[in-house]
Nucleic acid binder design. Structure first.
Length: 183
DNA sequence: CTTTCGATGATCT
DNA sequence: GATCATCGAAAGG
């Protein structure tokens, strides 16, 4: 069973909460996401296809990886349909698999600091440009179905200046592994 | 608790 | 040349 990526990024962002994401067996439960769409001024896809965002305009169910601020690799899941330009940014995981590997990569043993933030996920899971465009239902990726229902909180997206009024950030209410609290 | 700031480099104008 | 979907350390209340 895999998530259904052929929906709006807002729907997919909520649907993904509670799924477990692994890269080469390392990862945890998705507890925070953000939606980005093509008519959304904050989205990389807003101005149409470019060299960087090409994967966002490819088929859904693939990884879109980009380098943020010159040093942080961030992971997105492409959604909607081929050519559309929508994706969901993974913002925080609750670490469950391969804690030792993540601790080594992150240079901390505090579970809270392993993967609570998009750049931290990238470092903890070993994300890099080589993963850009790869399908999410095949190795090194693995997605495990949620075991429990989750209560969803929403709020404004973090770190953007355009389309800041949209409340397209979603998270598992009350999770201690969020990158920030919801208001 | 909060705010500020440097690191660091690809991308786009 | 400016911007940027970030992080961590440092400084201030």
């Amino acid at each position: 069973m895999t998530p259904d990526f052929k929906h709006s990024p807002v729907a997919v962002a909520q649907q993904l909460l509670g799924w477990t994401l692994l890269v080469d067996g390392v990862g945890g439960v998705i507890v925070e996401t953000e939606a980005y769409d093509v008519d959304d001024a904050a989205s990389h896809s807003f101005k149409g296809p470019t060299a960087r965002n090409g994967t966002m305009f490819g088929p859904p169910g693939r990884a879109y990886v980009y380098l943020s601020y010159g040093l942080h690799w961030c992971l997105n899941f492409v959604c909607r349909e081929k050519g559309h330009g929508a994706a969901v940014l993974l913002r925080a995981l609750e670490p469950t698999h391969g804690m030792d590997v993540m601790s080594e990569r992150r240079r901390t043993t505090q579970p809270r600091l392993l993967a609570s933030g998009p750049g931290r996920i990238g470092q903890a899971l070993g994300i890099n440009k080589a993963l850009d465009g790869l399908a999410l239902d095949r190795p090194p990726f693995e997605l495990l179905v949620p075991t429990k229902a989750v209560e969803i909180a929403s709020g404004a997206r973090i770190g953007i200046t355009k389309a800041a009024e949209l409340r397209w950030r979603f998270g598992v209410a009350g999770s201690p592994f969020l990158s920030r609290r919801f208001d």
